[in-house]
């Protein structure tokens, strides 16, 4: 497993305490799990995703990621409606391991209140939390 200083944590996304990342583009927010989460889980074999059109509040569970020996639930960083899911993951869940911020994105959400993004952590705050 990676050491904390080996983690790939981009500056241009926000982080949650449950190790999701979120990146806003207008009012559309792309969400995935971060490098720490994918590294902890190990080789991911399945990503359970919601349906397009489903609505969630911040901190609601929206899906799960499975490795051979573990399951981890994913929670919404912000409130909103699902506008897209990464269908490629059905055949290639390994994308989450290989590139969790690009080809391994999980859902896109139309945010109902973009200001909720402000409550999320930036890289420095997230690192601080990990070092706990």
């Amino acid at each position: 497993m990676k050491d904390i200083n080996e983690l790939n944590l981009p500056e241009d996304v926000k982080y949650t305490k449950d190790h999701e990342w979120a990146k806003a583009d207008g009012d559309t927010v792309t969400i995935g799990i971060n490098d720490y989460a994918q590294d902890q889980l190990g080789e991911i074999v399945f990503v359970e995703m919601p349906a397009v059109g489903d609505s969630f509040s911040a901190e609601d569970e929206f899906g799960s990621v499975e490795s051979v020996k573990a399951v981890s639930e994913m929670y919404m960083p912000i409130s909103g409606e699902i506008v897209a899911i990464n269908e490629d993951l059905e055949d290639a869940p390994e994308n989450v391991n290989e590139d969790c911020y690009q080809s391994g994105w999980i859902i896109k959400v139309k945010a109902s209140d973009l200001s909720e993004m402000d409550a999320l952590m930036d890289k420095a705050a997230y690192l601080e939390m990990l070092k706990g």
């Binding site: 074999v45 399945f46 499975e66 490795s67 051979v68 020996k69 573990a70 399951v71």
Partner: peptide, 12 residues
């Protein structure tokens, strides 16, 4: 597919 099972998912 043993992640469906009780010893991993426990109460879920």
């Amino acid at each position: 597919l043993s992640t469906r099972e009780q010893h991993i998912r426990r109460e879920r």
